[in-house]
Design a protein around this nucleic acid. Structure first.
Lengths: 216, 216
DNA sequence: ATGTGTAATTTGTGATCACAAAAAAGGTAA
DNA sequence: TTACCTTTTTTGTGATCACAAATTACACAT
């Protein structure tokens, strides 16, 4: 019952699989802010012992995806208003830079792909699927930013998304918006026109627009 | 021989103590790029078992302070030129923002404290103490940025410092600079004058100056 | 109902072990 | 000396356990 082959499973180590699954769950808003997790619970869900669960949780805590109470219990973060605004500022700093770097490399095939993703965002809005909306929205941004060839900046940005995940759902669950993603269209226009200042502004606005209206 | 009191030691849990110590060691350039670590080695050094060592290492890997080879072995990162430039770009984005936010709150007592730290930086330069130089240099920046009241942005910035730690020593070891920190004086001048654009520029230049001359 | 103190349960922490993969060492032949 | 194969050692991974602290459940008294 001990130690499956080192590189056996599709993803590799067990703690890696647990990490990836929990990370996606948090980033996409499938957990509510303040929701608690236990090592034994995670282990049971994934059919592993506490050890890989602990390692996955440690990683997520280090990334700010989970917070550790004084007694070592872990939960999804409950962000203060100040913290939310700070994270919005980080998005406003990082994402225009990524978009600007991606711009010279954004050819037609990429823009077409972004439009496809954007239509899926619209579908998620139409069916009031908050989690699906977040997932597709982030995929839109990530697809663009991947073209920036800046893995360190992108990783930093994704860490910010991760920290905002649970809060984002609380936000998008609140407002029942039926409007399609307007700012994404601005981004696509600027991309097509090769308009760098316009792109920066559109990305910055899109990144911060939602978070602004979160005064709890 | 099992489980010391939960909140006994000065820092709390054993993995926390291991984490903090290793983190400082890496950030201050006390390890060379590519230097390997082993879980059992760490455990032996700190007088603990592999378990806390593993947790500390996981955290540091998540922060980019250590890298994981395909076989799970951990070492200090060997940064490519592109990666170094990216991290310099991150510093150039984040640190002027922090300085700008700190500016309205930077009163005389803070500036005096910065000047004290800056003189210690000069001492480290004089005695060719690369590690001490890095430590004092970062303390100069952190002391200023703490006034920005922006913990999330500061934490992100410190993660960048952490990733650059080992490489920074390789850099400052190379150039035997005997010149005192010129850019720090510019920062202090701008702070005293309340000159926000000048402060942003000085901080940006100071953050990127060293990394620029690293073409290996 | 409400607060209070005690018992039962849950939970994180750290140690230890077996195992397999990887790396290192050693030896042999060309 | 160099290349190649075998053996030994090192190393990360995951499971399991004991323990103590924290949390919860519960009963009892007011």
């Amino acid at each position: 019952m001990q130690t499956p082959p080192r590189i056996s499973e599709p993803t590799g180590a067990a703690h890696e699989r647990v990490y990836r699954t929990l990370r996606a769950r948090i980033m996409h808003g499938e957990m509510t802010p303040g929701e608690a997790l236990t090592l034994r619970g995670i282990g049971k869900e994934f059919g592993v012992s506490m050890t890989p669960a602990r390692e996955a949780v440690r990683r997520l805590v280090a990334e700010g995806a989970l917070t550790l109470s004084s007694s070592g219990r872990v939960a999804t973060p409950l962000l203060s208003n100040d913290r939310i605004e700070e994270l919005a500022s980080l998005r406003a700093l990082l994402e225009p830079e990524l978009a600007s770097r991606a711009l010279p490399r954004a050819h037609f095939a990429l823009i077409e792909r972004l439009e496809t993703i954007n239509s899926k965002v619209g579908q998620m809005v139409a069916r009031h699927d908050a989690t699906g909306y977040i997932r597709m929205n982030l995929e839109f941004h990530r697809t663009l930013y991947l073209r920036a060839q800046a893995p360190a900046i992108l990783a930093t940005t994704e860490t910010v998304w991760l920290q905002l995940g649970p809060t984002m759902r609380a936000l998008y669950g609140r407002l029942n918006r039926s409007d399609p993603p307007y700012h994404h269209k601005l981004i696509l226009q600027a991309l097509k026109a090769g308009d760098e200042p316009g792109l920066r502004l559109a990305v910055r606005t899109d990144a911060t627009q939602g978070l602004r209206m979160l005064k709890n």
